[in-house]
Every structure is written in structure tokens, then in C-alpha cells.
């Protein structure tokens, strides 16, 4: 008797077409998001239990940081355009938009370093007050994420220059995009809570 054996390949239905790498990045984002939540909530709890808390606008350079926020929004746009380009098979577009995102990230870090330099020279150091500690720990933690993102973009850009990505192979660009947008998304909350409220 000729028995036909069929092998059933397990499908990843609950997650659609999401690759393991993409799911892994989402898990990292969730865990990282909770780390940021921990820092922001700890800051809020300290603030609520403190008798006096400085007004951010009197100590920090709000217009400069607002520009940095705008810059990060622009890099989110260039990142999503990089993915959109390679999905259409436009390798040149991918490289150009990744380069813009990389430069935006570097500029963001440069502005943050400049801000720290002036604050520290003005006597506002991490040990100055509870407010200063909250400010430096939260913004520095975010800055490290931007720095990691810049390195990550450089690696993907390098691979893009070697011609690794195409209309059929753009998973890594999508995963990088998720990380970079998360960095932008978290900054929106950090900017509001640390600088504006």
C-alpha cells in the first residue's frame, strides 16, 4: 500500500508573518519599556514625596531639547522611509535614509552632550539634588539607547552597502526600525515628564 506521508509545518499563526527576530525585538522593547517606566515612576514618587521640586524651565534649556525632540521625530520618519524604500526594492533609498537617521542620532547625542557640559559647568551635577539625579539617570539611560541605536544603524548601513538587502530580504531593517522608533517613543514621554511637567 502506497501511503503518502505529509509533513505538517507548524505555522506561526498567532503572530502572522512576524519572524522570530521581530518577536524578540518586541519582547526587548516591552522589557525595556518597563525599565523606563520604573525610572520615570521612581522619579514621580520622589517628586511627590518631596517638599520642594525645581521648575524644569528655570534650570534646563527647553527650546534646545524641543529641537532635539523634533530631530528624533524626523529620524523616525527617515527610518520608516528606509524600510519603505527597501520593501519597494530601492537600495539607494535605503542607504540614503539610513544615513540621514544615523546623522540625526549623532546630532541628538551631540546636543545632549553639549547640554550636559553646560549644566555640569553651571554646578548642576548628578549629586546636586534628588531632581538632578532623576534628570541625569533617566536622560542618560535614554542617551545610551540612542548610542546603541547609532551603532546598530551603522551595522545595518554597512550591510546595506554590501548589497545584503533587497525587496525580498528586509527583516533586519524592520527590526532595526522597531528599536529606533521605540527610542523616539520613549523620548516623547521622557521629554514631557522631565522637561515640561
Amino acid at each position: 500500500m502506497n501511503q503518502q506521508n505529509t509533513i505538517s509545518i507548524p505555522t506561526n499563526d498567532p503572530f502572522g508573518k512576524a519572524t522570530n527576530g521581530k518577536l524578540g525585538m518586541w519582547l526587548l522593547i516591552i522589557v525595556d519599556g518597563l525599565s523606563f517606566a520604573g525610572l520615570l515612576i521612581a522619579g514621580a514618587a520622589l517628586r511627590a514625596s518631596s517638599d520642594s521640586w525645581p521648575i524644569a524651565g528655570e534650570l534646563l534649556n527647553i527650546p534646545l531639547t524641543a529641537f532635539n525632540t523634533f530631530l528624533l521625530i524626523c529620524t523616525s520618519f527617515t527610518m520608516v522611509m528606509a524600510l519603505s524604500s527597501i520593501q519597494r526594492g530601492d537600495e539607494k533609498g535605503l542607504k540614503t535614509y539610513l544615513l540621514y537617521t544615523l546623522l540625526g542620532g549623532i546630532l541628538f547625542l551631540g546636543i545632549q552632550a553639549w547640554e550636559y557640559y553646560h549644566l555640569i559647568h553651571g554646578g548642576f551635577t548628578i549629586s546636586s539634588s534628588m531632581y538632578a539625579s532623576t534628570f541625569y539617570v533617566t536622560t542618560c539611560f535614554h542617551g545610551l539607547h540612542v548610542f546603541s541605536g547609532v551603532i546598530y544603524i551603522s551595522c545595518i548601513l554597512w550591510q546595506a552597502m554590501q548589497g545584503k538587502y533587497s525587496a525580498d530580504n528586509w527583516d533586519h531593517v524592520e527590526i532595526l526600525g522597531l528599536f529606533w522608533h521605540f527610542v523616539d517613543l520613549v523620548w516623547i514621554l521622557v521629554f514631557t515628564i522631565i522637561y515640561l511637567i
Binding site: 498567532p14 503572530f15 502572522g16 518577536l23 523616525s76 522608533h181 523616539d184
Partner: peptide, 23 residues
């Protein structure tokens, strides 16, 4: 305003709108 901005980034730039219900 901040939550609206975050939702916009997640929904449109991170393409959450195209993900499955489980994710």
C-alpha cells in the same frame, strides 16, 4: 498629548496597526 504622540509612533511608524491581535 504625550500619549497621543506615542500612540501615533507605535501605530503608524512601528506598524502595530498591521500586527495580529495576539501581538
Amino acid at each position: 498629548f504625550a500619549i497621543t504622540k506615542m500612540m501615533l509612533v507605535a501605530w503608524i511608524y512601528m506598524h502595530v496597526q498591521h500586527e495580529t491581535k495576539t501581538l
